[in-house]
Amino acid sequence: MATGWAGDGAVQDQIDATVKDAIQRARSRMARGPGLSRCEECDAPIPEARRKAVPGVRLCVACQEAEDAEEGSHGGYNRRGSKDSQLR
């Protein structure tokens, strides 16, 4: 099957690279070390249950939700460059 300039497994290679990048990005954002008893942003107390559930926690729930929303607003880039994904 003719695929133009791309090799036979090029699409799967791009998918695998995207997944690998996402995993590395998620691991780099994970907190390490002991968790805090107070939020580093607003100084609110972090409940014991949250500290046990999320090792290395540094933010209260409200501040974590705000940070997650801010990170989610940044769009990723399109590796494939397909016309369909560029139209969205």
Rank of each mutant, 00 (worst) to 15 (best):
A22D: 09
R80N: 05
R27W: 01
L59R: 14
E41Y: 07
A10H: 15
A26K: 00
M30K: 15
A17R: 03
R32W: 03
I23S: 06
Q12C: 07
L87V: 12
C60I: 11
E41I: 08
A66N: 07
D68M: 03
E67Q: 13
R79E: 06
M30S: 13
E40M: 00
E65H: 15
D84Q: 10
T3S: 11
A6P: 04
Q64W: 02
E70D: 06
W5R: 15
L36R: 09
R80Q: 13
S28C: 08
A44V: 01
T18P: 00
L87Y: 03
R80D: 01
Q14A: 11
R80S: 07
A6W: 09
A17M: 05
E48K: 09
D8Q: 00
A26H: 00
P55E: 01
K52C: 00
A49Y: 09
A6C: 02
S73W: 02
Q24P: 01
Q12A: 06
G72N: 02
G9W: 11
C63V: 09
E71K: 14
R29D: 08
N78L: 08
S37H: 14
D8K: 03
V19H: 05
Y77E: 15
D21H: 12
T18N: 01
R50D: 14
D43C: 00
I46A: 05
G76V: 14
P45F: 05
D13C: 10
I46C: 04
T3V: 10
E40G: 09
A17N: 10
R29F: 04
G75S: 09
A53S: 03
Y77F: 12
C39N: 03
M1E: 14
V61K: 13
G81L: 06
A69M: 10
R29I: 00
D8E: 13
P45Y: 06
I23F: 11
G76P: 00
Y77A: 10
C42S: 04
V54G: 03
R58G: 03
A62E: 15
E41C: 09
S37C: 11
Q24W: 00
M30N: 09
V54M: 15
V11P: 06
R27F: 06
A26P: 00
A69L: 12
R27T: 06
P45H: 02
D84K: 15
T18I: 08
S37Q: 15
R50V: 06
P45G: 00
M1A: 15
R51A: 13
P45W: 02
Q64A: 13
S82V: 02
D84M: 11
D16W: 04
E48Q: 13
I46N: 04
S73H: 10
G4D: 08
A10M: 06
C39R: 07
S85T: 07
G33L: 09
D13V: 01
T3C: 04
R50S: 03
G75Y: 07
S37E: 14
R79I: 00
S37N: 13
E48A: 11
R27Q: 08
A53W: 11
I15S: 08
E48H: 05
A10G: 14
A69D: 02
E70V: 00
A26G: 05
K52N: 04
G33N: 06
A49F: 02
R51L: 10
G35P: 09
G72T: 03
K20I: 08
N78P: 04
P55F: 04
R80H: 13
M30D: 08
G9Y: 11
R29Y: 05
A44N: 09
L59I: 07
S73T: 01
A17Q: 14
A17K: 13
S82L: 11
R79K: 14
P47D: 03
